Amino acid sequence: MDYIHVKDMEFYGYHGVLAAETAIGQRFRVSITLAVDLHQAGETDELEYTVNYAEVYMICKEIVEGEPYKLIEAVAEQIATRILATYEGRVKGLRVEMIKPDPPIPGHYREVSVELTRGEFQ
């Protein structure tokens, strides 16, 4: 299996359980790994045989900067669902990591994140 990685995309959204999160908003980072057969794209040098990662970026941007969700799990699920539907048959599987670098919880840590995997991965 071949993979396309789009790492550390950064967006500003209004997701969270606390009122302050939905009022003020915060930064979110998203990393995506797509399982795709890239053999034909490599041989032909044609975009039609791969996944346009500029479009993947825009899907992530629309979802993260769009409708607020309480849970980052829900945001990650929306991203996975949309990418799989958009590239049905081409994307065999994907991994979405949704990162909340500054959650409003006390303590010292770098970030919190969820990671979900859908479809085929080796």
Rank of each mutant, 00 (worst) to 15 (best):
V51C: 03
I24W: 15
P104T: 04
R90C: 04
E111G: 02
V91T: 01
Y109D: 03
D102S: 10
V64F: 08
L34V: 08
P106H: 05
R82G: 10
E120A: 08
E73Q: 12
A23W: 11
L94F: 11
H15Y: 13
I59H: 06
E97F: 13
G107Q: 03
V6H: 03
D45W: 05
T86V: 04
G93C: 06
E77K: 15
E46Q: 12
Y12T: 08
G107P: 01
V51K: 00
A76G: 15
K61L: 00
I32Q: 11
P68A: 09
V112R: 00
E111A: 08
L94N: 06
G16E: 01
P106Q: 08
E73I: 10
A80D: 03
E88N: 12
Y57N: 00
I63S: 00
E73P: 05
L71S: 11
T81L: 11
T33V: 07
P101E: 05
E77L: 14
D2H: 14
Q26I: 07
V56C: 00
M98G: 02
G119H: 09
T44A: 08
V114W: 03
G93Q: 02
G66C: 03
E67D: 10
V56G: 01
A74Y: 10
V64Q: 02
Q78M: 14
M1E: 01
Q26G: 15
E88F: 12
L18R: 15
E62T: 09
V91I: 09
Q78N: 14
G107F: 05
G13H: 10
Y3N: 11
Y14R: 09
G89N: 06
Y12E: 14
L47T: 07
R90A: 02
M98L: 14
T50H: 00
C60N: 02
A85C: 11
M1I: 07
T81Q: 10
E48M: 11
Y12H: 14
E62R: 10
Q26S: 15
Y53T: 04
P101M: 08
E67H: 12
I83R: 06
M58F: 01
I72W: 02
K92A: 05
Y49Q: 08
L116W: 01
A74T: 13
G42E: 15
E97H: 08
Q40P: 10
T22I: 15
V91G: 02
R29Y: 13
V30S: 01
Y14S: 08
I99T: 02
M1P: 00
N52H: 05
P101G: 11
I59T: 13
A35W: 12
Y57S: 00
I79H: 03
K61Q: 09
L47Q: 05
V114Q: 02
I105P: 03
L71D: 11
V112E: 09
